[in-house]
Computed example of a mutant assay.
Amino acid sequence: MSVTVEQYNPEWPQQFQTIKSELETYLKDVAYLSIEHIGSTSVPGLAAKPIIDTDIIVTQENVQPAIDALISNGNFDYLGELGLRYRHVMKDPNQSPRRNIYVCVDGVAQTRNHLGLRDTLRRDVELRNEYARLKLELASKNTNIIDYTVAKGVVVNKILEASGILSKDELAAIKEANTIGENFSALRTERLLLREFVMADAEGYFELESNEENARYQDWPPRTKEQARQLVINNLRDHNDVPRINFELAVDYQGHFVGRVGANLSPANNDKLPGESTIKQVTHANLWFSFLPSVQGKGFATEAMQAFIQALTKRKRGAEEGGKWEFEIECDPRNTGSWKLAERLGFVRHSLTKEAWQSKGEWVDSLVYRKVVGDA
């Protein structure tokens, strides 16, 4: 999904006041310190994504009471810290206007970062104009949110240095947090876009996972809407883990969610041979994929998995470090679509285990295909 940046809208401050009033109702029994309008929409004259960013600032001991109140009184989802300590991300079910809600600990670097960025841009016209030009330029190039955040990093650090409220170590930590890290930049193929999940994918995920046909060879029955939503939340949390073990990307076709591809990583046996002084790392990756029935038979799964596997091998594990990637696709042999896709991807049949486990009241065979990428 490309980032949308708009010229400053004078309605944004009033939208924040509406959101603030709602939050005050939910937090009536919580000793919070303040509710702050932060982010680019809080800076008069600054172009911004049309999303109202809001910090609920509390002392450390009131973090959990604030989270609990938002969940119980406002039906919020708690997404976790998402890679930034002391900044707890809450998903408001009300997204009119669109908003990001954070519960932040008073005085910590991340909270001072939010306030310092806002206050500096409010008073420094030159920095504000430089930041606006960059944001509009990135949006004009259809930049995805991961690359957008990384590309802004240099100017953001320049603004924070000008604020004078962060130490050198704190600035370095924020700079590191704004790098791509373990996140995936968007992957474009001839027809598809593979990208990190966002909460807006919950409906598409439910359409996919609630389908009887798709669940036929899975260990679980069709998902409920709440289960699908929770799985999207899990994906959001996973792509902020360091090191990241679980990778799952949404697949878009012509702007619509059509499926998902994923991998779970783990160390495998090493390749040290007699007489060798070093160990070549082997990273094992269990792969999966699932696509809506309406797009099956069009080669989308093959196209997406080829791009996904290629992107994984370029990461800082396995083959790039002189070791190997050992990719595995395990499936029910009755699922001919799965094992035929594995063969199209160049995977080799590794094993067939009869009656490997019980699933939905019946014994199921296990067919495993493998492919090794990296040094021989």
Rank of each mutant, 00 (worst) to 15 (best):
I57P: 02
D219H: 06
V103M: 01
A139W: 04
Y102K: 04
N335F: 09
N286L: 07
G74P: 12
S366M: 10
A319H: 03
R85G: 07
S266C: 05
F327Q: 05
K340Y: 15
N286R: 14
N129G: 03
N240S: 13
E320V: 14
C331M: 11
E61F: 15
A139K: 08
I279Q: 10
R223C: 09
K168L: 09
E190K: 06
I101P: 01
E161L: 12
A301H: 02
R85C: 12
N335E: 12
T283K: 12
R87C: 06
E22M: 10
V368T: 13
I51R: 01
N62V: 05
R87Q: 08
A319F: 04
F300Y: 14
T189H: 01
Q17K: 15
I52W: 06
V5I: 12
N240E: 14
S366N: 09
E11P: 04
V58H: 05
E226R: 07
D219G: 12
T143F: 06
I329R: 07
Q310H: 11
G323D: 08
A342I: 05
K360N: 05
T278I: 14
L136T: 05
L84G: 02
V155C: 04
S42W: 05
S96H: 13
G204N: 02
V63P: 00
T302E: 14
K272F: 10
L312I: 10
S266R: 14
G275C: 14
N246C: 11
G45T: 13
G262Y: 07
E213V: 04
S277V: 08
T336W: 07
E196M: 07
L208S: 00
E161D: 04
L79G: 03
L84N: 12
S34T: 15
D92I: 11
N75K: 15
F289V: 12
V198T: 13
N214S: 07
W363L: 08
E209R: 15
A342E: 00
S266F: 10
L236N: 09
A200T: 07
V348C: 08
S42K: 07
S163N: 06
I165G: 04
G83L: 03
R122G: 04
Q358K: 11
L187P: 00
L117T: 09
S351G: 04
V198L: 06
D241K: 14
K340H: 14
D201C: 06
Q230V: 05
S167Q: 10
L192C: 01
R99D: 04
L287G: 03
R334M: 09
I180W: 03
K91A: 15
N183I: 03
E248I: 11
L138I: 04
A311G: 04
L127A: 05
K272C: 11
L249H: 00
D201I: 00
A301F: 03
V108S: 01
A376G: 11
G107V: 11
P93V: 07
R99Q: 14
S351E: 05
N62H: 15
A200S: 10
V364K: 05
E137N: 15
V43G: 02
